[in-house]
Design a protein around this nucleic acid. Structure first.
Lengths: 146, 146
DNA sequence: GTGAATGCAAAACCTTTGCAACTGG
DNA sequence: CCAGTTGCAAAGGTTTTGCATTCAC
């Protein structure tokens, strides 16, 4: 903590959706947890510290509306609980099987998310989801075992 | 039907796992349904025609062991029910929002599944899952609406 | 023969929903 | 003011599990 200050976002940044206290709290929590890619339950725990009355269903609702509004992204890896991410740049997700963390992988210069794939003519990609699994090679667990 | 004959696979093709009648039926069904990327329930329906006594839990078990053994692949798109696929080549999946079908996207010549992504040094990818959503442009629904 | 797989039903898990009360613009 | 949102609890769909029985090797 410390790196990412809670910024009070304007309605416009949230696709014009009604900005309730709960949505603001959920967004703030996600910005603070940032790169940890928390699940809805994890967001719920942190949100409850700021607003004890918030319910889990509301956290799900808020995450859903913020995702719809394009303010955050939903991350699905296998059938695990969905994770959420405030990074709006095109990026992939990498799950390290040693340290069990998820981190973002950016694009190489000039590349696009679907670079390398032989898309048929006329096919229009509206959304792409890239999830990798393996070992990150830099976490304490990976260093120990290599 | 017609294109893909049910071939009785040997144990070796299944990573050496014990080849029960149920596993064989599940594998056969998946080979026949092939490009339809059926869900476990859909496999269950077809498997029951060949072996009425088979249970849904067993279908899940079989799909799991065949996946572990490397004989088939599990396909996850969003949080929808998992689909399964007998294509072992590296490929992505495309879900058409118009015709609601899933089809395979192959790699361009010379490309790899993680081409274009800026992987950190030391990072080793063991598995990659690429799911796209959009419109395929060739299904009757897409042609109508374009 | 024996460890592994099956079938059944019940449980687990994540997520959504129905509805009365509330609230942001 | 009032459509949209909340909180609660209950239901939903998918997948897993416990256990006695059966089977493949």
């Amino acid at each position: 903590m410390g790196a990412n200050q809670t910024e009070t976002a304007t309605c416009e940044e949230f696709g014009g959706i009604r900005m309730t206290k709960q949505r603001q709290v959920v967004y703030d929590v996600l910005s603070e947890l940032g790169i940890n890619h928390p699940t809805a339950s994890e967001v719920f725990v942190s949100a409850k510290e700021k607003m004890p009355s918030i319910s889990l269903a509301t956290v799900y609702n808020c995450l859903e509306s913020l995702t719809q509004a394009g303010a955050i992204k939903q991350v699905n890896i296998d059938r695990e609980a969905s994770r959420y991410c405030p990074n709006l740049q095109p990026h992939a997700h990498f799950y390290c099987e040693q340290c069990e963390t998820v981190f973002d992988i950016g694009l190489q210069n000039g590349a696009e998310a679907c670079t390398g794939w032989a898309l048929p003519d006329g096919c229009e990609v509206r959304e792409i989801n890239v999830a990798m699994k393996g070992v990150c090679g830099t976490c304490p667990q990976c260093e120990k075992k290599n």
